[in-house]
Design a protein around this nucleic acid. Structure first.
Lengths: 329, 329
DNA sequence: CCATTTAGGTCATATCCTGGCCTCAATATT
DNA sequence: AATATTGAGGCCAGGATATGACCTAAATGG
């Protein structure tokens, strides 16, 4: 019978739900004798999950962090929170964990009960997506694609290429790559009989066909390198340098560290450097700091900010004085 | 021995790592006979985790979504991604899952091996925090506090009250409440001998003392209601109405649905309504839409946008024409 | 039609699991 | 300092279980 294994999982679930568990409460919950509880705890320890125990009144058991991840036993709400959190991590963060987040999301989605999946979908639509105006990627698409990569299943989707033409593709997906705030699918295009990289925000209705395939050898060091080469033509990355009228530590306090580097100039001036491939996002990052500033470079950023300033000015017809002019620059 | 249970977990881990597993590969990996694999699969099914199987060549086993969450067996990177994802979900989302996210994060942190915790901390500092200028909350603080609430442990921290005076507090934490983009700790203040709500972004160096306490009865319907009453004095919520010079569906496509409601006016005008208690955040949301607009209300938003416009204009000294003036409004 | 793969019954054997009993050690309370 | 409480773990007996080997059946893709 699977009674013992099941009870062990149940015990693990209890130990994760709260920190301290008196032995008597465990015997009640699991319906076995205290002796068996002690043996179950010993079993968990044998499996590498350290359980501390304290003797005396107010004693009990406590699951501690060990050297390996124990199985996570989640309740429904927690599973949903994780799914939503991974969904945002997959596209909102700038930390290089996007691909892992998608992998974890695929794993979770594979076993997520359907009624929870519905709830996740409802919530997932309601997350913040910072890249301004930049095309957003549906996490749903990401998981479908990542699962197809993982399981070597053929994938079909509609694709709109850079020049705006639509086409229907059937590919052997190889890898999902996150590069410069964008997602790419590296795949063997069966119709074209060649390797291609697809921008995930440009594809629609991805679906695994169910047919399996045997992996081919990608003609590149790795998938990221392949994408890198493919999009060589349009790197379009902007590096901004801005002088801020504020003390360096003041800025450091209000901006997340990775947003850029801050160099003090004097008591109330500092230089701020940051890069992005989206001008709008870059402009916002500077504007969000909430202090006066001066753009040293790039000139495109100045243009962008000026356009934004003019738009804002048009939007706020000053009561007492007139805006300078609203026409072209 | 815990061999059987351990193998069952291992099997579950394998079935989660990939979708399809031929029986022979499982026997190799787990080092038992095929008969035992079949029995292990039967055990999993008995535990309520549905495993599909296909006969014939290209057959094998496949873990399917059932009605209950199975234990999640994560590798290290996935655990990190989840921790980071939950950290952002705890403060970045607007979906009402923040409190659950913190709960899940506490559960995860309790068992997260220390070397992974270090990696999470390194990454955690580097997540985007949207509320502009608004004080940010350290997810680390949230988990410490939530754990203390969950385990009924006394908590000590430094607190800066609204008027700027610092004090050292020792409390019996009751609940962590997320309300209007802010986190509050509802707790019994031992020194003051009364219930208080503390803004988490105002407290520093929270630490559980290790001393346990028995929960008191909160004089309110629930913790959220208590906070609600406590901050009655300063609701300071702004409801914005803005006319946009763009088609409604155009806007709908580029703004997340929950950011507000969009009502078409005519072919290329629509009205946009949204609310927030942070003017800066509100202003940005409108500015981020990237289209011309006109603010109907509130007047504070107009002021805010005007200030922003002026700052941007000061920052981008137009080459050909001079900015109107840089002095006070 | 055939090769492959899972399903699952049966059996013998070795092992394990459980509860009950015991003594000992640690710890908080009085 | 004494005492009550709680976990640790050895031992035992009886029953249950796990395993591998062997078998036949059923499903499936080529």
């Amino acid at each position: 019978m699977a009674a013992t294994s099941g009870r062990l999982l149940q015990l693990l679930a209890l130990l994760q739900a709260r920190r301290d568990w008196p032995g008597t409460e465990l015997t009640d919950r699991l319906g076995v004798s205290g002796r068996t509880i002690r043996r179950d705890v010993a079993r968990l320890r044998e499996l590498g999950y350290p359980v501390d125990s304290l003797t005396g009144p107010a004693g009990g058991y406590r699951l501690r962090a060990g050297t390996a991840m124990p199985p996570l036993l989640l309740d429904e709400d927690e599973a949903i929170a994780i799914a939503v959190g991974l969904g945002t991590a997959a596209r909102a963060s700038v930390t290089g964990i996007e691909e892992t987040a998608v992998r974890a999301l695929v794993k979770l989605e594979q076993v997520l009960p359907s009624h929870l999946r519905r709830r996740v979908r409802a919530l997932g639509a309601a997350t913040i997506s910072p890249p301004v105006g930049g095309p957003t990627v549906d996490p749903q698409h990401l998981t479908v694609i990542a699962a197809a990569c993982r399981d070597s299943e053929r994938l079909r989707f509609a694709y709109r290429s850079r020049d705006g033409t639509d086409s229907r593709r059937e590919v052997e997906p190889h890898a999902l790559v996150n590069l410069g705030r964008r997602w790419y699918l590296v795949a063997w295009d069966r119709r074209r009989e060649d390797w291609r990289s697809f921008r995930v925000d440009r594809l629609a209705r991805p679906a695994a066909t169910g047919a399996r395939f045997t992996a081919r050898k990608l003609p590149a060091r790795d998938a990221a390198a392949f994408v890198q080469e493919s999009i060589m033509g349009a790197p379009s990355r902007f590096e901004a340098r801005v002088t801020l009228r504020a003390a360096a530590d003041e800025i450091a306090r209000r901006a997340p560290a990775h947003w850029g580097t801050i160099t003090p100039i004097d008591a109330d001036t500092c230089e701020y450097r940051t890069g992005d491939d989206d001008l709008g996002w870059l402009a916002l990052r500077v504007a969000m700091l909430g202090v006066d500033f001066e753009v040293l470079e790039p000139p495109e950023l100045v243009e962008h900010l000026r356009a934004l300033a003019e738009r804002l000015q048009r939007a706020t017809p000053s009561g007492t004085r007139k805006p300078p002019d609203t026409g072209a620059s």
